[in-house]
């Protein structure tokens, strides 16, 4: 059993060691157990590409890939993910070497202010994988025959709010990348 000492009331608790692989790089941290994965990325690893939009699981801006699956980094604690790997928007591509989805977002204007964009991108990567694996959605007609469609994308990306409302352009961008077969 891994355990930290019982909390004296009001006091801070000892920090705990955690090892995370982020975008292929291993980070050994000692961290307050209250720190979310999101704040670990932003405040401790200075990877501010992952955004804090609501911090309560209601906007999707903090979406990252955790062991390859899209999750909300604001609703999980870093200490729970010792030994796991995280991919953030910075790990998808760089300005000089954009991931095909990043490139498609630029070409289709799949963003405006850009704040929800990293979440939309990580969510799109996860979504394309989920569709490929046959994970059904709310709009899937036949649970055993998941196929790609704009309607499927809209439903599956609905956890990523864009107040600037680049929605049609995001759907166009992801659809194009899916058609080209290089969204992974």
């Amino acid at each position: 059993m891994t355990q930290s000492p019982q909390a004296p009331s009001g006091a801070d608790l000892p920090r705990l060691p955690v090892t995370l692989s982020v975008n292929g790089e291993t980070h050994e941290l000692t961290i307050d157990p209250r720190v979310t994965l999101l704040d670990t990325l932003r405040e401790h690893l200075h990877l501010t590409g992952t955004k804090k939009g609501c911090d309560h699981g209601q906007c999707g801006a903090c979406t990252v890939l955790l062991d390859g699956q899209r999750v909300l980094s604001c609703l999980t604690l870093a200490v729970m993910h010792d030994g796991q790997s995280v991919t953030t928007v910075e790990g998808l591509g760089t300005p000089d070497h954009l991931h095909p989805l990043q490139d498609a977002f630029v070409r289709h204007d799949g963003y405006q202010c850009g704040y929800c964009t990293p979440g939309q991108l990580c969510s799109s990567v996860g979504t394309l994988d989920e569709i490929a694996r046959g994970v059904p959605s709310h709009v899937t007609a036949d649970l055993d025959a998941v196929t790609f469609s704009a309607e499927e994308l809209r439903e599956r990306l609905s956890g990523n709010i864009c107040r600037c409302a680049a929605y049609p352009n995001i759907i166009a961008a992801v659809t194009e990348v899916h058609a080209a077969g290089d969204g992974a």
Partner: peptide
């Protein structure tokens, strides 16, 4: 968020 101790079972 109050401070808490963390235990992994």
């Amino acid at each position: 968020m109050r401070a808490f101790s963390y235990t992994r079972a």
